[in-house]
Every structure is written in structure tokens, then in C-alpha cells.
């Protein structure tokens, strides 16, 4: 992301946009994780409460997904974003 072409007020406005977007992204990460780990781990519908196995599964699912995201994020950072943009026809 290259903001050097933006003047002061434009950069301030983009900062506000980015902050708002980060909050939305975080909420989407959160609800997406709930859905993903629920679907992968909740298997037994003979009771209302999570079993011990299901609870452990959900915790591991969250840990693993966040570590996965972090590693993908590192690769994504290395790959120059400008490079990505270059190929938009």
C-alpha cells in the first residue's frame, strides 16, 4: 500500500477508513472462526452441552487457525503488495 501520493488530509481520512476496516475484519475473523470451529468440532447433538472432546477440539481449532493466518500473513507481507496490484488488467 503506497500512500505517498496522498496529501495530509487524505492520509488522515485513509487512516480512519483503515481503523474502521480493521474492526470489521476482526469481527469477521471472530465470527468466521466460530463457524469454522463449530462445524469442525460439534458432532454430537444428543445433548446441549459441549463434550470435553468438543471443547478441546474448538480450542485447538482456534489456536491452529490463528497460527496458520500468522504464517500466511508473513508470506503475504514478503510478497510485495504493489506486485499484486501490477497485474490487475
Amino acid at each position: 500500500m503506497d500512500f505517498s501520493q496522498l496529501n495530509g488530509p487524505e492520509q488522515a481520512q485513509m487512516t480512519a477508513v483503515i481503523e474502521k476496516k480493521q474492526m470489521q475484519d476482526f469481527m469477521k475473523l471472530y465470527t468466521g472462526l466460530v463457524e469454522r470451529c463449530f462445524n469442525a468440532c460439534a458432532q454430537d447433538f444428543t445433548s446441549k452441552a459441549l463434550t470435553t472432546n468438543e471443547t478441546t477440539c474448538v480450542q485447538n481449532c482456534v489456536d491452529k487457525f490463528l497460527k496458520h493466518s500468522e504464517r500466511v500473513g508473513a508470506r503475504f507481507g514478503e510478497y510485495n503488495a504493489v506486485c499484486l496490484m501490477y497485474y490487475i488488467p
Binding site: 480493521q22 476482526f26 471472530y30 472462526l33 474448538v58 482456534v62 493466518s69 500468522e70 507481507g77
Partner: peptide
């Protein structure tokens, strides 16, 4: 549970926007 776990893991917010 996911909410609690994300708090434990900490810095989870960055995981989604760390590039």
C-alpha cells in the same frame, strides 16, 4: 469459547491484518 481463546492467544487482531 472462541472469544475466550482469542483473548488467551492475544494479538489475535494482528493475525488478521499483519501484512
Amino acid at each position: 469459547l472462541v472469544g475466550e481463546r482469542m483473548q488467551t492467544m492475544g494479538g489475535a487482531a494482528q493475525a488478521g491484518g499483519s501484512f
